[in-house]
């Protein structure tokens, strides 16, 4: 009996996982962004917004794509919108503070960002090897 229960639980967990793999506009946008296709990603996320997926994550990612296009004021608004939907999100807070630094002449990257940059460079070097 216990085994059957466990098997059912496992089946549910697996089903849950496969459901998250379903390609939504949002996730497709993320894939494009990772390949550097920011404008296309922006379009996908905007479509996701129109279909009612109004989440902090989408606003955050749209803001990054706007930053990529040098539309800094619009990006700021999107980060702020994301923070309204998820006020405690540390990642969005960091993104917004980095944008503010970018908009404020004379400010240097913070220690955390330097670490992130090093981490990314290492990762890229690893891929090349």
């Amino acid at each position: 009996m216990k085994q059957i229960t466990l098997l059912i639980v496992a089946a549910f967990l697996l089903a849950g996982c496969s459901a998250t793999r379903v390609e939504t506009e949002y996730k497709f946008g993320n894939k494009l962004a990772k390949r550097g296709l920011w404008k296309e990603a922006h379009y996908r996320w905007k479509r996701a917004l129109r279909t009612g997926q109004n989440t902090a994550a989408i606003h955050n990612n749209i803001a990054i794509s706007l930053e990529f296009q040098n539309k800094l004021e619009e990006a700021k608004k999107e980060y702020e919108e994301a923070l309204k939907l998820s006020p405690g999100n540390e990642y969005i807070k960091r993104n917004l503070s980095r944008l503010k630094r970018r908009m404020n002449p004379g400010m240097e990257p913070d220690a955390e960002e330097r670490k992130d940059l090093k981490r990314m460079k290492k990762k890229e070097m690893g891929k090349r090897k």
Binding site: K27, A33, A57, N60, E67, N95, E113
Partner: peptide
């Protein structure tokens, strides 16, 4: 110059 951002999955 390169900057880093967090893309939320």
């Amino acid at each position: 110059r390169m900057e880093v951002r967090y893309l939320i999955k």
